[in-house]
Write a protein that binds this DNA or RNA. Structure first.
Length: 424
RNA sequence: GGAGAGAUGGCAGAGUGGUCGAAUGCGGCGGUCUCGAAAACCGUUGUUCGCCUUCCGGCGAACCGGGGGUUCGAAUCCCCCUCUCUCCGCCA
């Protein structure tokens, strides 16, 4: 949510910036400014009247204390008209407040100045790439065939238990999941992230705080009886730890990470490229989350990119890093880097991480603020997060890229975690 | 699930209709003292919105779990919701 001050002061700037996201903000902003000024006008009036009411009430109090009943009664008469006026005005304010809020919520976050113009994936800019695409034999199999061949992930069984997109990991397949999670968490710990194990269902306030609600309601599983949502990413519970808090500036940046299963309905996004592990309703992910000082949040972002890069390097996967263009970025992000790894049998890049700076956009929804030592004013913090990493596509790439006649070779760094060197 | 009790500032804890944004203690911050520190003493100490102000700030409104109501006036009375605790039941 953009700050109202910013909208008041930098209307033209916002309109220009949002063009990068191919978003025409002019109409909404005009509406916001109109609603905002009538809101302020009404509030000034009611504040004044309420002040008058308070004065009279105090007067009545002391009159009664002095036993001046008649005068007190006369003073009471004065309040009735005022009270009615205040009521009318404050009732007028309610829809204005609601409209104002919902209009502001329609505005996406401003893209950072380095965000390239563009409409879709083709316009993203490759920041760098590393690793050679492995040469695998012509009879190599895509991962959905490999998992069957070695019986490590069972989609049909998942369908029986739950439905499509809820795979069952078995034997070495299950162990590989656990190994990756542990590896990612250990690497995160080395990089100074505190591990948290949060609830994987959250309430409405949390869903709102990170921006899933109200717009992306249909993307989350909803436990209606209790009105809880299954988390689509650990970002939601971990970032919401800092909802409604005022932090001391000197503890920034806060660095947390969490492993959680992630649940996504993926309504309307099933198509040709989603076979096997490419898209699931439930998957595992380790997420890194930071709360940063606005002056240093981009340093944080770069550190996070480096960290994620370290992971794919250690797993020996060919990867590329993309700076997302305005049209491909999320509603809430100011700058996003995507990581993609090469999937040798599918012969395509798979997105395995998305690292973003949300600047104060989420923080404004969350009311996550900080205070500089000795300063009276609170300021909005910056929030950032990134996958480090999401498992399924990493597994897909590992299986495909490392397949040999004898079986699938496990990357060196994972062997201490798996306890085996080969899936065969 | 049943019965009861409760929710007050960073924390603890008073306050049951009238200058109560809220006593007191702790903590935090600033100062005195000290070479420095501790102790002691003095002072200070929330958030949001609006209006005014060149800065410092000033004035007003709102906030005592959340929402609604009664009243000239609500932390205090009434209703609904949420959460916490105690006992019972069930249970990994």
């Amino acid at each position: 949510m953009l700050a109202i001050n910013l909208i008041r002061e930098k209307k033209e700037f916002i309109i220009e910036r949002l063009k990068v996201k191919n978003f025409d903000a002019e109409e909404i902003i005009n509406k916001v400014l109109l609603l905002d000024s009538s809101r302020r006008e009404i509030q000034s009036k009611t504040d004044m009247m309420q002040g008058e009411m308070n004065l009279i009430s105090k007067e009545i109090g002391s009159l009664i204390k002095d036993g001046k009943r008649d005068e007190a009664e006369a003073a009471k008469q004065k309040t009735y008209g005022l009270k009615e006026e205040i009521k009318i005005l404050s009732e007028k304010l309610i829809p204005i407040d609601n409209d104002l809020k919902s209009e502001i919520l329609r505005l996406p976050n401003l893209p950072h100045e380095s965000v390239p113009l563009g409409h879709g994936a083709d316009d993203n800019i490759e920041v760098r790439h590393r690793g050679n695409k492995p040469q695998i034999p012509d009879n190599s199999l895509p991962h959905w065939d490999l998992i069957k061949k070695y019986d490590i992930i069972d989609f049909e069984l998942g369908i029986k238990l739950t439905g499509a997109g809820f795979p069952v990991y078995k034997g070495k397949g299950a162990k590989l999941q656990r190994a990756l999670i542990s590896f990612f968490l250990d690497e995160g710990e080395k990089a100074g992230y505190q591990e948290v194990l949060p609830p994987i269902m959250v309430n409405e306030d949390s869903g709102f705080g990170t921006g899933q609600l109200p717009d992306k309601e249909g993307q989350m599983y909803h436990a209606t009886l209790d009105n809880f949502y299954l988390v689509p990413t650990a970002e939601v519970p971990v970032t919401n730890i800092y909802r409604d808090v005022i932090l001391n500036a000197d503890i920034l940046p806060i660095k947390n990470m969490a492993y959680t299963p992630c649940f996504r309905r993926e309504a309307g996004s099933w198509g040709a490229h989603v076979r096997g592990l490419n898209r699931l309703h439930q998957f595992d992910k380790v997420e890194i989350v930071r709360i940063a000082h606005p002056d240093h949040s981009y340093e944080s972002l770069e550190e996070m990119v480096k960290h994620v890069e370290g992971l794919v390097v250690k797993l020996d996967l060919p990867y590329r890093i993309l700076r997302l263009c305005g049209g491909d970025m999320s509603f809430t992000s100011a700058l996003t880097y995507d990581f993609e790894v090469w999937s040798a049998a599918q012969k395509r890049w798979l997105e395995v991480s998305s690292v973003s700076n949300f600047e104060s956009f989420q923080a404004n929804r969350l009311k996550c603020r900080f205070k500089e030592k000795g300063d009276k004013q609170t300021r909005l913090a910056h929030t950032l997060n990134g996958s480090a990493l999401a498992l399924p596509r990493i597994v897909a790439a590992l299986l495909e890229n490392n397949q040999t006649e004898a079986g699938i070779k496990i990357p060196k760094v994972l062997i201490p975690y798996t306890g085996f060197e080969m899936i065969s």
